[in-house]
Design a protein around this nucleic acid. Sequence first.
DNA 1: AAATCTTCCAACCGCGTGGCC
DNA 2: GGGCCACGCGGTTGGAAGATT
Length: 258
Amino acid sequence: MNTTTISKSSGVRKGAWTEEEDLLLRRCVEMYGEGKWHKVPIRAGLNRCRKSCRLRWLNYLRPHIKRGDFSSDEIDLILRLHKLLGNRWSLIAGRLPGRTANDVKNYWNTHLQRKLIPLQRQDRKCRVLKITENTIVRPRPRTFSSAKNVSLCSNKSITKTIHKEDGSKENNICEKPIGDAPTDHGIQWWTSLLDNCNEIEEAAAVGSINLEENNKLLSLLHEEISPPINGVSNCMQEGQSGNWDDFSVDIDLWDLLN
DNA sequence: AAATCTTCCAACCGCGTGGCC
DNA sequence: GGGCCACGCGGTTGGAAGATT
């Protein structure tokens, strides 16, 4: 069924893409490269808005996009990264080669969220202290100026709520100046992320949070989530088998994280 | 077999941000 | 400094496909 419609206001086509449109878009991007999306509809001869063209390319036509079910490794990584990053789908997808932010978001909304909510509802009163899930990391990578040493994390802030034994809460907002070395923004960002882990370690050291549980968490963080070196996602490096096969372990991890 | 319900995902929409003038 | 424009992101929606009654 052809569900494509013509927008009355802009006159551009909306709805499902046809094979012909895909072909035109693919040729255009192959010829001119990605970017300059405002020029793509004209260059490709498509009666589509630039947003629609960009989305179609990024989510469907781009080479090496992985289709099909998510592997247990991928699911595990999504769970971990979502715990750290929240709904930062593009960042999470960036750690999953071949997966798009839309894929990850859809998978989360349809598979994981539904399964995990009941887990979150479980009574965890036995835990005296915990790091709650409102740990928010806000790196906002946008475009990168070639002329300036723009930090990837220029507006980064990390907030963390620690629930104390007496029932009170303490919010920590961590704003850290980022060095202006432009060499590897990815390392900077992930290092900053791990700085947050270090703060947890420090809190554990002074006994303000549960040491044992957070040692487990921190070991996982340091082990699994390290800076991407040279643009290669280390978690998916060739030859790394990992020990994520048993998904039941991962559910335990999720429980631990909450 | 038909009707209804549920699931899933491609695509749309609105908004925040950065760059440029 | 302010306005405009383009890009990128996350939330939401619409409809096809599958499952259930």
